[in-house]
């Protein structure tokens, strides 16, 4: 017993509530008299219930949710002080970050918003399991991965011989723009190297200590590099030297 061949559109249309009143009424009347169509309709209703059952649809993982919420957080005012109430800090999961920010807030140091953003991003990357989007030590995989995702090409080099094996790459959102983050490991620590095109009059090269984190900044071939890690400043400085020495020229 099967449905009338010419009634398929009506069958599905009724099931999906897409028929207008006249057609719906007419087809419901047909269902009362046609056993084949009625059976097919019942079968489709059963299928609809199984497909629509709870659990069949996927839910976004929390880590993804947090990344996207951080990405779309309202821009802080340009001359901000430290972000005491960063939007993502509101969520309970980020209580740990909030705590670490609070430590930084407590320090009587001058404000440099970008560095705080970089350090916060570094901390976030290690807490929220969003260390890498592309996880590989193969620079030939990491480099093309950035293609089409950002409009510049960060130099991707592996520094395994210098004690900084490449762990992967990631997109991040710093200073109102999407940036590349190269992730290196050093013993059990993580070095995030943020890269984006330099603007004229950018910051001078510098080494900064900030709340237990070291930040090293340099500019090379029109790109700004910011390395952030919890390793010691001298180790991060040697990372910079190694990177500069091996960067393609």
């Amino acid at each position: 017993m099967s449905a009338c061949p010419d009634k398929e559109a009506l069958l599905h249309g009724l099931l999906d509530g897409e028929l207008d009143a006249v057609n719906a009424q007419a087809f419901e009347a047909h269902l009362k008299t046609c056993a084949g169509c009625a059976a097919a309709f019942t079968e489709l209703q059963g299928l609809k219930a199984r497909v629509g059952a709870p659990g069949v649809a996927w839910r976004a993982p929390d880590a993804l949710r947090q990344r996207i919420e951080a990405m779309t957080a309202p821009a802080p005012p340009p001359r901000r002080t430290l972000r005491k109430a960063a939007p993502w800090a509101v969520s309970g999961v980020f209580a740990a970050i909030a705590a670490s920010l609070a430590v930084m807030v407590a320090q009587p140091i001058a404000i440099a918003g970008l560095e705080d953003e970089l350090v916060a991003s570094h901390v976030r990357s290690t807490l929220a399991e969003h260390l890498v989007d592309v996880q590989t030590s193969d620079r030939h995989v990491v480099k093309p991965w950035f293609n089409g995702r950002i409009d510049f090409a960060p130099p991707v080099i592996d520094l395994v011989d210098q004690g900084f094996p490449l762990a992967g790459g990631r997109l991040d959102y710093i200073d109102h723009r999407v940036v590349a983050a190269l992730v290196y490991r050093h013993n059990r620590h993580v070095v995030n190297l943020f890269v984006w095109p330099a603007k004229p009059g950018g910051a001078e090269p510098a080494t900064i200590a900030r709340g237990g984190y070291s930040v090293v900044h340099w500019t090379e071939r029109g790109l700004e590099f910011w390395a952030v890690s919890d390793i010691e400043a001298k180790d991060l400085a040697s990372f910079e030297r190694a990177f500069q020495a091996h960067a393609p020229s």
């Binding site: 970008l114 009059g201 910051a203 001078e204 709340g211």
Partner: peptide, 11 residues
């Protein structure tokens, strides 16, 4: 702890 503070004017 407190390192050199970056000149942040341009940004």
């Amino acid at each position: 702890m407190t390192g050199r503070i970056l000149p942040f004017g341009p940004r």
